[in-house]
Nucleic acid binder design. Sequence first.
DNA 1: ACTGATTTGCGTATGCTATACACAAATGAG
DNA 2: CTCATTTGTGTATAGCATACGCAAATCAGT
Lengths: 277, 277
Amino acid sequence: MATSAGAGDPVRTLELLWEVRQHSGLGRKPELSLDQVVSAAIELADAEGLDSLSMRRVAERLGVSTMSLYRYVPGKTEMFDIMVDRVSAEVCYHHEDGDGGRDGWRSRLEQVVRANRALFERHPWLLTLFPRRPPLGPGVIAKYSAELHAIDGIGLTDVEMDSVLTLVLEYARGATANLIEWKKFSARAEQSDDQWWATLAPHLDRLLDQERYALAVRVGSAATTHYNGVHDAEHAFEFGLQRVIDGIESFVDDKCLPAEDDLLTDALPEGKRPSRR
Amino acid sequence: MATSAGAGDPVRTLELLWEVRQHSGLGRKPELSLDQVVSAAIELADAEGLDSLSMRRVAERLGVSTMSLYRYVPGKTEMFDIMVDRVSAEVCYHHEDGDGGRDGWRSRLEQVVRANRALFERHPWLLTLFPRRPPLGPGVIAKYSAELHAIDGIGLTDVEMDSVLTLVLEYARGATANLIEWKKFSARAEQSDDQWWATLAPHLDRLLDQERYALAVRVGSAATTHYNGVHDAEHAFEFGLQRVIDGIESFVDDKCLPAEDDLLTDALPEGKRPSRR
DNA sequence: ACTGATTTGCGTATGCTATACACAAATGAG
DNA sequence: CTCATTTGTGTATAGCATACGCAAATCAGT
């Protein structure tokens, strides 16, 4: 089971994300730190998935009682938020120091997708846990900032930059989810997952109208059969990635062509003006 | 909380999806039907979200005891599967009777995205519940089939068709999720959601490095501020949709140009051959 | 060194969840 | 009328998040 995070007092969560609270010096010293708690939770989620992540399990892993955790974290959803922010801090891009120049945005966007894919592969639970609103901690903001810089100065308005980035990140999420699924499929070959299709196929053949759904059966089995090798799944990932970036490129190009429209720019409201370096 | 479905015996689930089990005639007559149970669950999820969907609540709504439900459904995850299949049957496309012809695939793909958006808007819980593998019931298969026909015969291989459809559906999911989020934001204006940004912004200003993250702050607040009106959110939805389809179009066009490569087609393995009407 | 305020750790309790199991009620076939 | 069969349901279990209260630890001021 996986929830969207973001419940509870947002300001309290924000303070936790930025670690504003200091130990006052008075009173009993804490035996743990927020970082230890969150790290243990992340390790557990990495190893066994979000479903197996309970406060009890985290406490056991740390050798403390369940209720001790609530001294560090207001609740489970807030812990999720902090987990997301922490792992978001893992991604780092090297494209800020002007590699590629103004036309390098294609490869920079590719890097963004690949970095996100790697993040999802390291922490698959991120795929099932999507916060309604992103936790605005240092990790998330650094990531968002770096990713914006990948497409800054190519002639998009602020709102357009956000839309493009959202589109690209959404592709990274979806495509990685599929990739992981296919990898699981091919990994445990003699496991129950290989037999899944094998045992279901004959039943399906009996149940559904073969003529009516001829196309679906052909394409579906083609996708299932040919993706057994990881190579094809990789190919599908790259395929979609190029499609998405192509679509963005055609938009960027179309914007640059009618240059006489620049005169209209000053008539636009603040946030919609194109930002060029 | 939301899980991926697909646990339990897949064959048993398949039988439920296709309603193979008949009442044998013997024994006590069932007071409910599978459809009643699933419908009640869908209504409850529509109204209060997946988090509030418990077997107890469903049973209460139907005026039976909790355990009665397990006579119709092996478990909760299986019920999720059936829910997904049932609502998938709601979508229907009118583009099968040859409107637009061979070059109408752009508008047909748009229709696919819009139909999926409408589905997600009717049943927002679909966004949080994504099955690891789709339940192969009549609804899901009919939907998949109709969506494949939207891009059939335009010169893609079977595997490419699956990749394109996956990409498009993934966009529909992600973009609709964002859209719904923004709508919620603007809907409850004097609710806590409007104050969320208002109360958080000053704290954030204090916490993060304004210079370092100048771009992120500008774009982020632009996206948040300008999307208060639903109109802009709609615009962002259409924007991404056109980008995705543009990317697919450039691929389809590039495939058609080098026509002399058709000779190589016969060398390709079965599922990778382009299927043209 | 002692006191009091303060903070952490933890045991207990509550109310929620899914669901295994046993049994009662209902019903058709013989 | 009997019996096998199927459904409805009460009870029980194990797990979950977490509210609450108290004990233990630690510091500042005396």
